[in-house]
């Protein structure tokens, strides 16, 4: 299901990631999941946090460019081939995955996967049809 993610623009400069994380730490915002994409010049830090609106505000106050957007969160069996099955479902439906990252659920024996498809609604539709276990925002933030 749809989950809010915040993305932060990072210049490839020493200490910028640390500064972003420190700003969140000061405001006691816990990070549920994180990924970094980087190019030669810049990087994009993507975060799933308990309070995305507050996180955005905090980071903007520290002069970061921040964007909030939706991603899809699903639970995948923590076993070999679990993610491959999900991805082939999307692939068969002709849906492009822009990026993907994952983390392990502490309580359940599942892996939580965050997906960004070109078209979020289309992605959700296909995954639902294939009976993939979707996670709600509430599920994720309370992990």
């Amino acid at each position: 299901m749809r989950v809010k993610q915040i993305s932060i623009f990072l210049e490839n400069k020493k200490g910028r990631l640390l500064e972003a994380l420190k700003a969140l730490g000061r405001e006691k915002i816990n990070i549920r999941a994180l990924s970094i994409a980087d190019t030669l010049d810049f990087g994009i830090l993507r975060l799933i946090v308990a309070d995305p609106d507050k996180a955005k505000l905090v980071l903007e106050q520290s002069n970061f460019t921040v964007k909030e957007n939706d991603v899809i969160a699903i639970a995948v069996k923590d076993q070999p081939g679990g993610l491959a099955d999900v991805l082939s479902t999307l692939s068969n439906a002709g849906i492009n995955v822009e990026y993907i990252y994952a983390f392990a659920d502490k309580q359940e024996n599942d892996a939580v996967v965050v997906l960004r498809t070109e078209d979020i609604d289309e992605g959700i539709k296909v995954l639902k049809k294939a009976n993939v276990h979707m996670l709600s925002a509430k599920d994720i933030y309370s992990l």
Binding site: T39, I44, V66
Partner: peptide
């Protein structure tokens, strides 16, 4: 140039 919010995207492809 500065990556303002309107230029910024969560996708590398769009940024490039």
């Amino acid at each position: 140039v500065e990556a303002s919010e309107s230029l910024f995207s969560d996708e590398i492809r769009h940024m490039e």
